[in-house]
Amino acid sequence: MRIQAIVVRIIRQFFRDKRTLALMIVAPMFVLFLMDLVFNGEQYEPHIAIDANVPQPFQDALKEADAHVTTMTKAKAMNELDEQQIDAFIEMNQTALRLTLEGSDPSVSKTVLMTVQKASQTLMPPAKQPFTIDAVYMHGSEDMALFDNFGPVLIGFFIFFFVFLIAGVSFLRERTSGTLERLLATPLKRWEIVIGYVIGFGIFTTIQASLISSFAIYILDMMMEGSFLYVLLITFLLAMTALTLGTLLSAFANNELQMIQFIPLVVVPQVFFSGLFNLDTMEPWLRSIGVAMPLYYGADALREMMIRGKGFEAISFDVYVLISFSLLFMILNVFALKKYRKL
C-alpha cells in the first residue's frame, strides 16, 4: 500500500520530467548510433594453437610474426577455443592449412588472419605457395563488424550509466528538498522507501532497456545470435544494480555535482574491465579487480548471448552475481538511511 504510493509517485514524476525521460532512452541510442559510425580497431598479439602435424618451419614463421604459439590436440584446442583461451587453431589438411577461428571479436580474427598470411609468405614466395588457407569461424563471420563485438558492452554500459546517474540524483533530491525527512516523519519504514524506489524505477528501466536493446538490434542491425528475452533479462538486472548502487551512493553526496563526481570513480573504471578493451593485455592482478564490478558480469553475459548465441547455462553465473549485487546494495541502502532516522 505505502510502497505502491511511492511507485505511483515516482512514475508520475517521470512523466512530468520529459527531458529526463528522453535522456534515459534517447541519449544511449544516440551514442550507440555515433559509435556505430566511427569505430576503429587496434593491435593485438593472437594466441594460436597448432596441431602437431603442422610443419616446423611454419610454426617458427608464426612465432616470428608475433603470435603466441602452443601445440595441442584438436579436441583440447576446440575446448579452449570455446572458452576463449585461444583465438585460433591450425591443422594440416592434406595440402591445405585449416584455420579455425573463435571469431567473436572481428579485430582479433583479422589479426589472426594477417599473422597466418604473413607467416606463410615469409616461408615461400607467394607464387609457389604450397598451402591454401581455409578459414572456419566458430562464432561470428568474416563480415562481422567491430561494432558487433563492442555493441553488447555498450548497451550494458549506457543503461548502467544513465540509470546510475538518474536514480542517484533523484534520490539525492528527495534528501535535499526535505521530502526524505518528511517521509521519515511518517510511519513509513526504511525498507519500504528502498523497495518503492526499486519498483518505481524498475518499471522505467524495463521500458528503457527494451527500447535501447531493440533499437541496437533491429535498427542498427547489431549482431544477435541468442534470445532477445535473455538480453532483456540481463539489461534489466544491470539497470537494477545501477539503480541500487546509485541510490546507495547518493547518501554520500551533498548535491548533484558531488553525485556526478562518482562517475569517474565508480562508472568509468568499470568500462576498462567490461571487455571493451582487451583484458588479456592486462596484468593478472589488475584483471582480478574486474571481479568486483557489476558491468564485467553484465557485459560478459550480453556477449555470450548476442555474439555467441549461448543459452541460459552460459549466463546463469552472471545473472546470479548481478542479483546478489542488487540485493547487497539494497540492504546497505536500508542501513544508510539510518543516518536520517534511527528507527
Binding site: 500500500m1 505505502r2 505502491q4 504510493a5 511511492i6 505511483v8 509517485r9 508520475r12 514524476q13 512530468r16 520530467d17 528538498s177 526535505g178 521530502t179 525527512e181 518528511r182 517521509l183 516523519a185 511518517t186 510511519p187 513509513l188
Partner: peptide, 24 residues
C-alpha cells in the same frame, strides 16, 4: 518541516494523494 517538503513536478492534488496513501 521548515522547508516545504513537496514534490514540485506533481500537482497539489497528487502530492496530497501521495501523503494520504503513506498514512494509510
Amino acid at each position: 518541516a521548515q522547508s516545504d517538503a513537496l514534490y514540485g513536478e506533481l500537482t497539489a492534488l497528487e502530492n496530497l494523494h501521495f501523503f494520504a496513501s503513506i498514512y494509510g
